[in-house]
Amino acid sequence: MTYIEKPSISNVVKFEDPDVAQVKKLTVMLNTGTDIYQGACKKRGSTLKDEYRKVAGVCYMDPKDMARLGVGNWDSVLVKSDWGEVVCYAAHSRDAPHEGMIFIPKGPWANVVVSPETYCCSDPTYKGIHATVEKTDKEVLLMADLMRYVYKKYVKEGDKTEELPSLGEMPIYKRKVRSQ
């Protein structure tokens, strides 16, 4: 059977690839789902940490697509869909080749750009979303900062979320003073 042959994967992003024409913006199909690094980090509970941003705030791309955009591993990219936009790290995919498709592991970053539409089926559309990817200078936000930036639940009126200090990588709450 022809499809038994397995692809060879390029492990490097070749910017000077002659088959690749540079573009500013890439039109892609976005898929989300679990991957083992995201899963392990999430369930360990380390969601505030930089580590979580590095496993879930990642846009896995085909190396050729990365060359087209001119981004390397851990460069920031802006992913936009009809539902929102989010800054992620670019990284080349272990599952390549899949030109024209990007994968963001499920998590707060992916949530911003997936569709809440259930088509009356209870289940939102997490896969097969039309999106664009472009290069950006913006930083990928830590989880707590991202949640504050996107949902603004406890942001006071008039405060600019962008200008607030980072919430950091550890839980912040007022502890009771305990007498020894």
Binding site: G45, W83, N111, S115, P116
Partner: peptide, 30 residues
């Protein structure tokens, strides 16, 4: 917080949320 689409989560920002869990996660932020 980690698994619902942003469009659905937006409503959680408008209403009281009670969380019973073992770890501080994205839902704790809401």
């Amino acid at each position: 917080g980690a698994h619902f689409p942003g469009g659905a989560l937006a409503h959680l920002a408008d209403i009281p949320v009670i969380q019973i869990d073992i770890h501080w996660g994205p839902s704790t932020e809401l």
